[in-house]
Simulated assay, not measured.
Amino acid sequence: MFALCCALFALVTWQVAADGPLRAADERLGRAVFRDVPDAVTEPLADLGNMTVAPLVLAVALAWSLWRGRRDTGRTPWRPAAAAVLALPAVPALVAPLKALIARPGPLEPGTGWYPSGHTATAMVAYLCAALLVTPYLRRRWAMPVAVVLTVATGVGLVLRGYHWPLDVLGSWCLFGAVLLLPAVVRGLPGVPRRGQRQA
Rank of each mutant, 00 (worst) to 15 (best):
Val12Cys: 01
Thr112Ala: 10
Leu108Gln: 13
Gly177Ile: 10
Val16Arg: 04
Thr73Trp: 01
Ala82His: 09
Gly113Asp: 02
Asp39Gly: 15
Ala87His: 05
Asp19Ser: 12
Leu108Lys: 06
Thr120His: 00
Gly162Asn: 00
Ala61Asp: 07
Gly69Leu: 07
Gly162Cys: 07
Ala59His: 03
Ala147Met: 01
Ala93Met: 13
Ala153Cys: 09
Ala103Cys: 05
Val179Leu: 11
Thr52Ile: 10
Ala123Gln: 00
Arg139His: 13
Trp173Glu: 01
Ala100His: 14
Thr73Ser: 15
Val146Ser: 12
Leu158Cys: 06
Gly162Pro: 04
Leu66Ser: 06
Val57Gly: 08
Ala103Trp: 07
Pro166Asp: 03
Ala153Trp: 04
Met51Tyr: 09
Arg104His: 07
Ala93Arg: 06
Arg23Pro: 00
Asp47Ala: 15
Ala121Pro: 04
Arg68Asp: 01
Val125Gly: 01
Phe34Lys: 02
Ala184Arg: 14
Leu56Tyr: 03
Thr73Val: 06
Pro107Ile: 01
Pro92Phe: 12
Cys5Thr: 02
Ala25Asp: 15
Ala17Thr: 00
Gly49Tyr: 00
Glu27Ala: 13
Ile102Asp: 07
Ala18Ser: 15
Leu160Thr: 04
Asp39Ser: 15
Ala130Leu: 07
Ser117Gln: 00
Glu109Val: 13
Gln199Lys: 07
Cys129Met: 14
Ala24Arg: 11
Arg161Ile: 07
Met144Cys: 09
Leu11Asn: 03
Val37Gly: 11
Arg70Asn: 09
Tyr127Ile: 03
Met51Cys: 08
Arg104Lys: 11
Leu22Arg: 03
His164Ala: 08
Pro80Met: 07
Leu160Phe: 15
Pro183Tyr: 02
Ala25Glu: 13
Ala40Trp: 13
Val148Asn: 05
Ala81Glu: 04
Arg28Asn: 05
Ala10Cys: 12
Leu66Met: 14
Gly162Val: 13
Leu128Gln: 00
Leu22Ser: 06
Tyr137Trp: 14
Gly157Gln: 02
Pro38Ile: 13
Val33His: 11
Ala61Arg: 05
Val169Ala: 01
Arg31Trp: 10
Gly113Cys: 06
Asn50Asp: 15
Pro55Ile: 05
Phe176Thr: 03
Pro92His: 09
Tyr137Lys: 05
Ala126Trp: 06
Leu88Gln: 12
Ala83Ile: 11
Ala32Thr: 07
Gly157Thr: 08
Ala59Ser: 14
Val134Ala: 02
Ala131Phe: 05
Ala147Trp: 03
Leu150Ala: 10
Trp165Tyr: 13
